[in-house]
């Protein structure tokens, strides 16, 4: 009797304690191409922070960032080589790559995404991906 009551109690607590929907800043970009597999937290890019300091043109024209979350295949090797984030995060314009936890700060397992995008706000999927075959 007590056991089943306890299970009931725990199940309700679980519902109450479960994490609520993410309330991250609009346009925070989570990049999880390789991080999870490498045992790192996914990188979170605060778009708002960077647009205060640089115009879109600097990263998206000069540095060649594509307008797609996870579409740039950024690796630490490229960053250390001075490409992508490494063009600024080199200890000269901004802090350098030793500060792992400043970028790799996402909740482990968070998929690559632009937080709060219109596609993410859709309640139901509007189309079927061509990659996946219908069951």
């Amino acid at each position: 009797m007590y056991k089943s009551a306890l299970i009931g109690l725990l199940s309700m607590l679980a519902v109450v304690m479960l994490p609520q929907d993410a309330q991250a800043e609009y346009a925070d970009v989570v990049i999880n191409n390789y991080a999870d597999a490498a045992g790192m937290r996914p990188a979170v890019f605060p778009h708002w922070y960077h647009r205060i300091r640089f115009r879109c043109k600097v990263c998206h024209a000069d540095l060649g960032f594509k307008f797609k979350a996870g579409g740039n295949k950024i690796t630490m090797a490229k960053i250390i080589d001075g490409k992508f984030c490494g063009a600024c995060h080199n200890g000269e314009i901004s802090w350098s790559v030793e500060n792992c936890g400043m970028c790799h700060s996402g909740v482990p397992g968070t998929p690559t995404q632009i937080h709060g995008s219109t596609v993410q706000r859709l309640v139901a999927p509007t189309y079927k991906s061509l990659d996946k075959k219908a069951k």
Partner: peptide
């Protein structure tokens, strides 16, 4: 609106670096 990083559900509050980031 504009939650600080440790409370926004995407940043890991268990990560030290998260608490250094500027709240929007």
């Amino acid at each position: 609106r504009n939650a600080p990083p440790p409370e926004d559900g995407i940043h890991d509050a268990a990560n030290d670096g998260t608490h250094v980031l500027q709240p929007p």
